[in-house]
Structure formats: C-alpha cells, structure tokens
Design a protein around this nucleic acid. Structure first.
Lengths: 197, 197
DNA sequence: GACCGTAGTGACACCGAGTGCCACCGGCAA
DNA sequence: TTGCCGGTGGCACTCGGTGTCACTACGGTC
C-alpha cells in the first residue's frame, strides 16, 4: 500500500516541480507519449519517488483537486438561503474557480489536457464523482430529500455538466471570462433551455 | 497495431462467449480482481485472442456500444419536428433503450458494473463522448446553431447526465421501469427543476 | 560523541494491461 | 499437391503501478 504523505515545507517544492515538469511534458508531447521515467528525470527524482507524490500518472495533472472539492463544499455551505438552489450552486462554482490572473495559464494548461486527452478525460469521471456527491448533499440539505433521490443526483450531475461545458467554452475563447461562461451555462440550465423555445 | 476484425457468422458466437465469461467473472469477483488470462481461460481462448475481439479489458463490458450510438443517431434523425428538442432527445433515449425483458438481466449486470467499478466509470466518459457528439449535432440541426456552440453542447451533456441518473435510479429500484426513469429525469431537466421552486 | 527512531529516497523485483511479431493450422482455390 | 489467407497461440517487450529493502539525513537522548 503506497501512502500519499502529508506535505511539509520543502516537500511542497518538490511536488510543485514534479507537477510542472509533468504538465510541460504532457503539453508538449501528449499524455500517453510521455513515460513516468521521463517525468521523473525532468523533475530530478526517481520513478519510485514520483509515485510517492502522485498515486497515478493522471494525478500529476490534477493538482490539489481534493482541496478544490473541500473549498467547494465550504462555499456551498456558506451560500445564502435566500437565493435559489441552482443559483447557490452556480455562485459556489464561480467562487471556487476565481483564480487570479497569474494562475490562469497553468489552469488553461491543466484543463486543456484534462478535456483533450482521452486517458485524462476518463480519469476525470472519477474525480467529478466527488464533486457530485458534495453538490447532491447540498441540494438534499436545501430541499429536505435524501441525497440519493432523483433531484439531488440530477441537479448534481447536470450542474457539473454545465460547469464542464462552460470550461470548454472558456478554453475555446481566450476572451471569455470563466465566471461569465459559468453564468451563461447555468442560466440556460436553470431556465430549462429557453432558447429551444 | 491491433485490428478489431469484422464479425462473421461463427465469430460472433466466440465474441458472445468471451463477453458473457467476462461479465460473469467481473460481477462475481470485481473488475480489477479478474485478469485477462482468467477471462480467456473461462472463454476457452488465449489471452492474445481476447485482444483480437476487444481492444481493452473494459470494452468487454460494453458490448456493441458503437451500434447503440448509431441507432440513437438514427432515432434522433427520425423524430418528429413537431415535438420540442428535449422531448425528441428523450424519445430517442427511451426508444434506443427499449430492450425486451429477456435482455434486461444482462443489461442490469452491464450497467451495475459500469456505474460501480471506478475503472469502468472512468472508461465510460470516453464512450459517452460519442453520444454527446451525436446529440449535439441533432440539437444544432434543429436550432440552426453550430454544434460546438453553448446550447448544443450543454443540452448534450446535461441530457446525458439525466440519462445516466435515470439508469442509476433504475438500477436501485427493481420495480421502476427504465422508460419511466428516463421520462422522470427528462421532465425535471426540461422544466428547469420545478421541485426546487 | 555514540545511540536511537523516523522521514525521504533510490534500487530492485514483480504483476497486469496492452502490443508487435512470428509460427502454426485450417480451409479453399488453382 | 501447392499456395494463399483468416484466425489463432506463443513469446517477448513496454509501461503503469506496487511492495520491499537498504541507505542517508536529521533531531533528540543518554
């Protein structure tokens, strides 16, 4: 059993170095074409050590996604009861994805890989499952139905579908702000696709 | 390069035998716990031959999903222009999943694996991408916007999310007909989640 | 200073998925 | 019979991922 160790001071620097090396190599040559040995070499560590920082090859692309989910959960819990459930989810998604400009290039790099490379797209389903559970729990809390009932599950999966689509639109158009893309997608969804008449 | 060969008469029987062996072993012991060698042994073929029928271990679970997508596409094309776009997608989903009772146990087995086993859940994302493209093209045709615009993409991903959720509800409740589960989910989605007020 | 435990690392061996290559066997046409 | 050809099995190899062990560095404790 391989343990992912708790990050300490200097350790975080190594982790960041591996992550950046992986991101750069994957972007340049494609995810499948790069071996773990090459990433490890580029980061100045051994192959075995790579797996002490990231459980799988795909994990190196996702950064601290667990933290991301935890933040989303906190933001959902902090939303005002006065706004609609869908609006609260949209607000949380926007807030949790409110990166400052310096972080945007890396985010683009990350998301382009995740949405483009089949192996990473596949892996994303597992990660998004965590998001769905958090959102479904929020909807269940707000509506008073069990989290595994139709509406919480459906709201969770379809809002996540909306967020993913928003990311795709954001990726395709450099001038479209992420928050705007998210709002556009959520507005369509919340209104039952009014543009379809 | 391994080619997936065209099915001929007796060949299809071997394929079915491998598929059933795989389904049974995966159900009994879990997807990860079963090796290709074991599936090959159970099906009376060699490991190498397994990969001549199925490109990956996961593919053995999916059956003829490409044909499924082709049928969905045909049904979308055949829907009446008089009903709403969402209704036409729902109708196509219901029709393409209208299995006769004898096929239901295998479908349950298949879907339980796909929705339960992380590796298969991951693989599903790639398969669903094909579905999304077909649905987005249909929406684009009906609305006159490009298939990579927001609405076609969003409708494709969120209807697929609805269908997946419907499958989950169907799996969890033996007495719920699949068509009913699909309609319930699509109704919620089309109305912008009225139960959220 | 010698003695510890502990965290991080590298090296090695191993497993399983997937692929390329070649040799074999059956049927079938010339 | 000969030669071709589709399907197959065996083999070797790559690569992702895991368990194990030995080495080093460091921070106390006596």
């Amino acid at each position: 059993m391989t343990e992912i160790v708790v990050p300490t001071d200097a350790r975080e620097e190594t982790r960041a170095r591996i992550e950046q090396a992986a991101l750069d190599l994957f972007t340049a040559q494609g995810f499948e074409a790069v071996t773990i040995d090459e990433v490890a070499d580029a980061a100045g560590i051994s192959r075995r050590t790579f797996f002490r920082y990231f459980g799988t090859k795909a994990d190196a692309v996702w950064g601290d996604f667990d933290g991301h989910v935890v933040r989303l959960e906190a933001m959902l819990a902090a939303t005002a009861g006065s706004q609609s459930v869908l609006a609260s989810i949209c607000a949380a998604y926007v807030e949790v994805n409110d990166y400052d400009d310096a972080a945007l290039p890396t985010l683009r790099q990350r998301m382009r890989l995740i949405l483009t490379e089949p192996a990473l797209l596949a892996h994303s389903q597992v990660r998004y499952g965590d998001v769905d559970r958090v959102v479904a729990a929020h909807v269940a809390r707000r509506t008073g139905v069990p989290p595994d009932a139709l509406v919480p599950r459906l709201v969770a999966t379809s809002t996540r579908a909306a967020a993913t689509t928003a990311f795709e639109m954001w990726l395709a158009d450099v001038r479209l702000p992420l928050a705007r893309a998210l709002h556009d997608a959520f507005d369509e969804l919340a209104a039952g696709f009014p543009s379809l008449r």
